[in-house]
């Protein structure tokens, strides 16, 4: 069983939900990122999503777009992030998931990327602009190396898409709570509840909800409907403002 699956299994046994914070690697510098990861772990994060900066982040709203820009200005690249993960593995075992657009991976070479990611201790990857239909080689190679591929579902997803994404996903499924981009306002209604229920029924895999969760109340509600929650823009905003993230993440942890 993969590390990520192990975490979900353990949490389930304890009746708990996974807290998965997102930060941009290299925002404002890779040194800071190391501190943030350790702080997030202390604050109760169960795994961490590390953003890989890209020039054209089309699934991201303004807050995370600006984080991409800041990290790019630092010269942070996928290559540097992989080396960084190798370094931080001396200090923490917390599962790390890269969130990267497809082109940096494609340019690196799919197989070369997966091998190196596994070697340095990355546990899985989320690629917001890669759908299972275009990911046959990617999934095959990832399976060969025991690397988790986490695909996304959305409120617009049909049953056919839910089946496809479930088969392609390992570790968990990322449910995008809204039709929209990161940082948009969360809208929790019955339709979200219904979609999540049908996903859980079809998928038989852990589902984590992300996009738009910005405070403990929303976190608590979203967590009640899923196996875990992802909090991104709200943390990235604190980092951009130079504020402490530990207290905020602790409060989220206590709420779920």
């Amino acid at each position: 069983m993969s590390t990520i699956s192990g975490v979900f299994k353990k949490l389930k046994k304890e009746g708990k939900k996974a807290l998965i914070p997102y930060i941009m690697a290299g925002d404002p510098s890779l040194n800071n990122t190391e501190n943030f990861i350790l702080e997030l772990e202390e604050a109760g994060a169960d795994m961490i999503e590390l953003g890989v900066p890209f020039t054209d982040p089309l699934a991201d709203g303004p807050t995370i777009q600006r984080a991409h820009e800041r990290a790019l200005r630092q010269g942070v690249t996928l290559r540097k992030i992989l080396a960084f993960v190798e370094g931080i593995r001396q200090k923490t075992k917390i599962p790390l998931i890269l969130m990267t657009y497809y082109n940096p991976v494609f340019k690196y070479g799919i197989e070369a990327f997966i091998k190196e990611a596994v070697r340095v201790g990355v546990d899985g990857v989320i690629v917001p602009d890669l759908i299972p239909d275009e990911a046959k080689d990617f999934i095959r190679i990832a399976r060969e190396h025991g690397f988790d591929t986490i695909f996304l579902l959305a409120p617009t997803s049909t049953e056919e898409r839910i089946r496809k994404v479930s088969t392609a996903s390992k570790g968990f499924i990322y449910y995008v709570s809204i039709t929209g981009i990161t940082g948009a306002k969360l809208l929790m209604d019955d339709s979200m509840k219904n979609t999540l229920e049908s996903i859980k029924e079809i998928a038989k895999r852990p589902v984590a909800v992300g996009f738009g969760i910005s405070n403990p109340e929303e976190a608590s509600l979203a967590a009640s409907l899923a196996d875990g929650i992802i909090v991104g823009s709200a943390i990235v905003r604190l980092i951009a403002e130079g504020k402490n993230i530990k207290g905020f993440v602790k409060a989220i942890k206590e709420a779920i």
């Binding site: 699934a59 917001p128 275009e134 409120p155 617009t156 039709t179």
Partner: peptide
């Protein structure tokens, strides 16, 4: 091909 967020697939 199609390289887009899942939201757009439908």
């Amino acid at each position: 091909g199609r390289f887009v967020p899942e939201t757009l697939m439908p």
